[in-house]
Design a binder for these strands. Structure first.
Lengths: 209, 209
DNA sequence: GTCTATAAATGGATAGAC
DNA sequence: GTCTATCCATTTATAGAC
């Protein structure tokens, strides 16, 4: 045991703050790079160059390239979680559905690479760490609870809803990047889904809920 | 000008046939590899090993890695086109929609890498050649004409439909690979869409068609 | 914490012999 | 058409100076 003076503690804190700040800087640069070069186009050399470092120095902050992806994955899910938590509480089904759909489709449309990282699994061998995955689980749970709040509680209903939103999102990302071609379909999609769900008891729907 | 004897022509043909057969063999191996290692995990070295060649020899058949991807892209679209052409002609809206949805969701669920290659753009810098892209355009046109045959002719209606199908497909691929969790939702999704489209004239829908 | 140096593996690609 | 040889970039990782 070495005795830690108050001064030591302060130094450690400062160092830690600095360390985290640099990490943040690297991750911001990484977001920028995957945004322009594609998620799979990220290279540690280029990343190091972008933050004015030697590639080897990145290892002080991230133990591997996958670790960088893992932090981006956590980042993206945290951003999404914050937005979901900002959804106005309401018992108006259509209004909640519209907010949620707009949130997801916008989120997807804003950053193709982020969408790819969070929702498609396109990086060979990349698996988020348990800690990062926990945030993704939280996103899912939060989204599910918002939907449950307006009566969409069944597995089938929820799956159908996520399919509708995923469809608008993936089409927006793949076929209308930067535009609003599928964002403009949200009102239609919500009306379509809501009428189907409301219009009839679960028992007579094509698939049992 | 050198004079070509009939024998020369036969030799050239045989060579050509052999060349195409080897090309086919390489592409089949490539499909297998992207299926297991992911679309972005394809390596020319591993591909060469799989067909018992030196990596450099692949360049006799494909001018670059992107050229391999381009042939896979054309391959996949040809497969899809064949299936669409096999859709039974009918004027029953629900039946046609069900067939189309099942076709696409199954196609996606069967081969994740193929879906990624054809519908998401996850390979940095890869752009299909005009010849390959033409096949994709044919797929789109064929799909659109089948839908138009049952009255889904407007841009908005068609976009909403493709979003629904893309949603089921991408959820199936990403969240239920090998299963049928979203395939089972097809009847629901088709009923939802059909009722919305039939139920009311275009003018009073949320977005004008 | 950052650098230089260094290593070994892998990847895409080309030139030229046979 | 296939090979050997070769090139250059990238990735991952370690050791050690400052």
């Amino acid at each position: 045991m070495t005795s830690a003076t108050p001064t030591d503690t302060v130094r450690r804190d400062r160092r830690h703050v600095r360390h985290e700040a640099t990490k943040r800087e690297i991750l911001d640069a990484a977001w920028k790079m995957v945004g322009t070069d594609g998620l799979n186009g990220l290279s540690l050399r280029a990343l190091a160059r972008a933050v004015d470092m030697e590639p080897q120095s990145l290892y002080t902050y991230f133990s591997s390239k996958h670790a960088v992806y893992d932090h981006l994955f956590a980042d993206g899910n945290r951003q999404l979680l914050t937005r979901i938590e900002g959804i106005a509480v309401s018992d108006d089904l259509s209004q909640v559905l519209r907010s949620m759909a707009l949130l997801f489709v916008s989120f997807a449309g804003e950053d193709r690479a982020r969408y790819e990282l969070l929702f498609l699994r396109t990086i060979p061998d990349f698996e988020p760490s348990p800690e990062s995955y926990a945030i993704a689980t939280e996103v899912f749970a939060k989204g599910r609870s918002v939907l449950a709040g307006v009566g969409i509680g069944g597995d089938t209903d929820f799956d159908l809803w996520t399919a509708v939103v995923a469809g608008l999102s993936s089409q927006q990302v793949a076929n209308a990047p930067g535009g609003d071609r599928y964002v403009r379909l949200i009102d239609d999609a919500v009306a379509m889904f809501a009428e189907y769900i409301i219009g009839r008891p679960a028992a007579i729907r094509a698939t049992k809920a």
